[in-house]
Design a protein around this nucleic acid. Sequence first.
DNA 1: CCAGCTACTTACTCATCGGTCAGGAAAACG
DNA 2: CGTTTTCCTGACCGATGAGTAAGTAGCTGG
Lengths: 199, 199
Amino acid sequence: MPDSDEAPTDRSRTATRILDVAERLFQRRGYNAVSYADLAAELDLTTAAIHYHFPSKADLGQAVVTRYRRANAKQRAAIRAETSALRARLQRYVELYAGVLADGGMCLCGVLAADEATLPTPVRREVRGFFDDQTDWLTSILAEDIDGGAGLDGCASPRQVADLLLSTIEGAMLTHRSPRNELNTFRASLRCLIDTIAS
Amino acid sequence: MPDSDEAPTDRSRTATRILDVAERLFQRRGYNAVSYADLAAELDLTTAAIHYHFPSKADLGQAVVTRYRRANAKQRAAIRAETSALRARLQRYVELYAGVLADGGMCLCGVLAADEATLPTPVRREVRGFFDDQTDWLTSILAEDIDGGAGLDGCASPRQVADLLLSTIEGAMLTHRSPRNELNTFRASLRCLIDTIAS
DNA sequence: CCAGCTACTTACTCATCGGTCAGGAAAACG
DNA sequence: CGTTTTCCTGACCGATGAGTAAGTAGCTGG
């Protein structure tokens, strides 16, 4: 081994390109509407080449979601490290999703959740894991808050507020996709919620 | 014509059965993962029989969503007629979706929104129409409210609150599907929001 | 210089997809 | 009664889905 590489999973150049394109397409079209042929065309490869790196579509799907989860964990860690106020943290967290929405995509796990019934088991497990990651993180961020978070009348626990936040984010992405510039509507909905939650 | 039938679109018995099964399957698997063969098997028909009633899949999809939209409009009208308090109206509105979630489904239009990029144009138009229906109705319900709805700090307009509500509902359905009894989590999230919005 | 591995391509397989067409049973119509 | 219309079946179509097998070009290490 040349040097202890940054990533725990050490992917070849081509495998990484495949994951990149697959992630993009999954975010736009969902799991079932993406074929090996689509990927091959965009990558200028054959479908067999993709099967060489990812034997089955389940393998590919799992690899994409696992990487997505890992990248997301890093981003959340950065937010936690670089900000301390609840409001600022939530705002930066929302911007994570706004960025995806801005270039015509949907949260990878949000869109895969819609295909849940037809997802291979390992992919489904990974998607659920992603959502658990989010609610756990949000819960701890909310619980850490100094002023007790008395914003929402009806919510007893930070966990409930976390659930509410995640739901709203995923739902806002689902219902406000590209055509008109609904990115602003997305941001407005979330700003509204955050203003109520934080201070 | 025997008598002026209740429905503007007068469907044969079989066509209605096809729509019923198609709606159920779309809600569980999304648009792309439902085939004519699936429907035929469940209905004990041939695929050709379905093509007789709905020549293309786009026709079928559009018919399903149009009917769904119409039924939903009736339910909303009933809520408006039978309740007057904002809180009660919103609670009954949320129960509309909780019912779908309870038997393992997802909002038809929510799940179709995830497949948006691959949807035939008429189906996509109908799905967008459904969302417009919801925000319009919620907006007017909120605007009608006597106490001005001072619940959410950051939201100026009823329309913004309506957007927020719809997003939360769709997102909560997406992220809290069947396996454990997450129906309660769904209800808790929405109760939390409603408590903040109404009185 | 050859053995072996990595990273592919070419050329398939077989199932399933949405969709078509000719025909037939049965009911409705005149 | 005969004819037309409604509603369906059986047999098929070409395209596309995921996946496979065999072969090969290019490095790499001994």
